[in-house]
Computed example of a mutant assay.
Amino acid sequence: MTRIAIIIGSTRPRRRTAVAARWVAEVAAQHPAVAAGQATFEVVDLAEYGLSVLDEPVPALFGDYRNAHTARWAETIRSFDGFVFVTPEYNHSVPAALKNAIDFLFAEWNNKAAGFVSHGVHGGTRAVEHLRLTMTELQVANVRTQVALSVFTDFEITDPAEPGVIAPGPHQEPTLIELLDEVIAWSQALKPLREATSHVLSA
């Protein structure tokens, strides 16, 4: 079975990102591949991992992790075949917490697939542009389809200090389903590479 993580890419209290991630999970749960037992989706919340600012003494490329929080994070990411990153845009880029979490690891990301659901004043599109570059360096296949949620039209917000309620436009769910189709397909297509790499590492 193909396992896909829906990663909440913000650790702020009362995150709108968590609201968006729950919507992604609800749509994903209805996907035909899930009903057929071919794929499963699981929400992964960065806030639950307690990652400090990168504190590993050895670069992630070598896989020589020394800290318990890194080992726990590595075990989680290693267990998935693909990812849907749900991210806000902070100052034209990726949240520091998300970039930091990505940088803790290397091989655990390799030969997998990723899609992006973003939100913000500009739909979070500029954060995703930066994420695509990072994922490419980590040998993660970026799918083309992207969901960009506007804070003005895809959420109902009465208090800017609260996350509000997600209210996606009618085009957003079909776009998300297309994104999920692509992430599942690419994750499955890359399985032989993951298996070959796993064999080499364990030899």
Score class of each variant (00 low, 15 high):
residue 49 Y to L: 14
residue 10 S to R: 12
residue 196 A to V: 11
residue 89 E to Y: 00
residue 82 G to S: 07
residue 105 L to D: 05
residue 69 H to Y: 00
residue 80 F to Y: 14
residue 23 W to T: 12
residue 20 A to G: 13
residue 157 I to W: 09
residue 22 R to A: 14
residue 192 P to S: 10
residue 100 N to D: 10
residue 111 N to T: 00
residue 24 V to G: 08
residue 155 F to I: 05
residue 178 E to D: 14
residue 177 I to K: 13
residue 112 K to N: 01
residue 105 L to W: 09
residue 14 R to M: 12
residue 17 T to V: 08
residue 78 R to F: 04
residue 42 E to H: 07
residue 100 N to K: 03
residue 44 V to P: 01
residue 135 M to P: 06
residue 99 K to H: 14
residue 149 L to D: 10
residue 91 N to K: 07
residue 136 T to C: 04
residue 153 T to R: 13
residue 72 R to C: 02
residue 149 L to R: 07
residue 151 V to G: 11
residue 150 S to L: 09
residue 30 Q to S: 10
residue 163 P to Q: 06
residue 184 I to P: 04
residue 157 I to E: 11
residue 170 P to Y: 00
residue 104 F to C: 12
residue 83 F to Q: 06
residue 199 H to K: 15
residue 26 E to R: 11
residue 4 I to T: 08
residue 134 T to K: 00
residue 176 L to P: 04
residue 65 Y to F: 14
residue 73 W to Q: 10
residue 138 L to T: 01
residue 118 S to Q: 03
residue 8 I to T: 11
residue 169 G to R: 14
residue 133 L to E: 14
residue 154 D to W: 04
residue 96 A to K: 06
residue 102 I to K: 04
residue 125 T to A: 14
residue 82 G to H: 01
residue 203 A to H: 12
residue 149 L to C: 10
residue 116 F to Y: 15
residue 203 A to F: 04
residue 171 H to T: 14
residue 188 Q to M: 11
residue 10 S to D: 07
residue 183 V to E: 10
residue 1 M to P: 08
residue 73 W to H: 02
residue 156 E to M: 14
residue 191 K to I: 01
residue 22 R to T: 15
residue 55 D to P: 06
residue 183 V to M: 05
residue 150 S to V: 01
residue 30 Q to P: 00
residue 135 M to Q: 11
residue 168 P to V: 07
residue 107 A to H: 11
residue 36 A to L: 00
residue 128 V to W: 00
residue 64 D to S: 14
residue 20 A to I: 13
residue 46 L to C: 10
residue 80 F to N: 00
residue 116 F to W: 13
residue 92 H to P: 06
residue 194 R to T: 00
residue 139 Q to G: 00
residue 176 L to S: 08
residue 56 E to L: 11
residue 160 P to E: 11
residue 109 W to P: 01
residue 149 L to K: 12
residue 88 P to G: 09
residue 115 G to I: 10
residue 73 W to L: 08
residue 127 A to V: 09
residue 142 N to M: 07
residue 41 F to Y: 15
residue 139 Q to E: 02
residue 185 A to H: 01
residue 89 E to F: 02
residue 122 H to A: 13
residue 76 T to Y: 07
residue 4 I to K: 05
residue 100 N to I: 05
residue 73 W to A: 09
residue 102 I to R: 02
residue 46 L to K: 13
residue 171 H to E: 15
residue 80 F to M: 04
residue 164 G to E: 13
residue 5 A to D: 00
residue 155 F to E: 06
residue 188 Q to W: 05
residue 134 T to S: 13
residue 83 F to G: 06
residue 123 G to I: 05
residue 15 R to C: 09
residue 45 D to I: 02
residue 155 F to L: 06
residue 143 V to Q: 03
residue 121 V to E: 09
residue 135 M to G: 08
residue 5 A to I: 01
residue 191 K to Y: 04
residue 118 S to M: 03
residue 61 L to A: 14
residue 154 D to K: 12
residue 97 A to F: 05
residue 110 N to H: 09
residue 141 A to V: 12
residue 28 A to S: 03
residue 36 A to S: 11
residue 85 F to I: 15
residue 156 E to K: 15
residue 181 D to Y: 07
residue 183 V to Q: 10
residue 23 W to Y: 15
residue 66 R to N: 04
residue 50 G to I: 03
residue 74 A to P: 04
residue 161 A to G: 11
residue 38 Q to R: 15
residue 199 H to S: 07
residue 98 L to H: 09
residue 144 R to S: 10
residue 114 A to V: 02
residue 137 E to T: 09
residue 83 F to D: 02
residue 85 F to G: 10
residue 156 E to R: 15
residue 25 A to G: 05
